[in-house]
Amino acid sequence: MVLGVNLRWKALHERGACRPPLRRGLQEFPVAFWFLLPAILVLGTFNFYPAFYSLWLSFFEWDGFSPQRTFIGVENYTSLLKTGEFWNSVRVTLIYAGGVTVAALLIGLGVAVLLNRQITGRSFYRTLYFLPVITPTVAAGVVWKYLFDPTQGVVNRLLALIGVSGPAWLNDPSWALLSIVIVGTWKRVGFNMVVYLAALQGVPRMYYEAAALDGANAWDVFRRITVPLLTPTTLFLIITSLIEAFQVFDLVYVMTGGGPLRSTDVVGYYLYRHAFRYHQLGYASAIAYFMFLLIFVITLLQFQLGRGGGAVES
């Protein structure tokens, strides 16, 4: 069959060569087939097909090894919704995602505005702020875990300098999640800054010149011109940040293992445990689909809100 396609492609190509190249139409199909085959195979097998396969799996009870899969309908979903541990992980994930998104957005915007001018060391600052973004999450988690050490960690030692006795951070159920939010924010700010900086450079100077003529002060300019003009960028950053944060796994795995007392047990980690430790593949697939739904709904909501907000501004 491969040979057949190959010959057909050759034949078509030879005919094509005699014609003016602008009118090609269908005859490029076989060539395109070979150009696209590897991509379609890989994305099909490991992205597209799995999306449906895991939906199908979520209706079964299966450990992944035994030949026996039991169809149980929506039972995985109903038992999911009845499990307090699952709702805890949803709550933890929402707090993490919300915290990182808001904090990194505000700081990223602040840094971008400060850097959006002729200033010495501009690229130096930009590189430094961006380093956490490209740092492997596992290594970052390891280092921060020790920075948060209750007695000898840098964070508490710095706090002690200003007379504050810091909490036990990762060892304290009421501080552990905040600690992870801090690391997530630290890793995200640089990305937001770079995107905001690019957006700020696209703002026409005349807006600012007009505002200056009207005698507007810096805060007014920021609030009335910069922020509204950046709305599409902000929306984009919120959505990508939420989607990324909903899937957080590495940080939790390395820093807390979901503890203490499940206070950092994000959905990604909850899913991992059920899939690869307890071998409940059907149940874990239901979790994955629930997460997908959450991401989908929030994305839609964001677009809706964004449209509403835009209307109010104008």
């Binding site: 991509a39 490991f46 992205n47 895991s54 799996l57 992944g64 989607i243 899913l271 994955a288 997908f292």
Partner: peptide
């Protein structure tokens, strides 16, 4: 469709990819 695969969260594909 190819762009659409970027929207699929990784956890969704994780278990089936592992099985494959």
């Amino acid at each position: 469709l190819i762009l659409g695969t970027m929207m699929i969260p990784f956890p969704i594909t994780l278990i089936p990819s592992f099985l494959i």
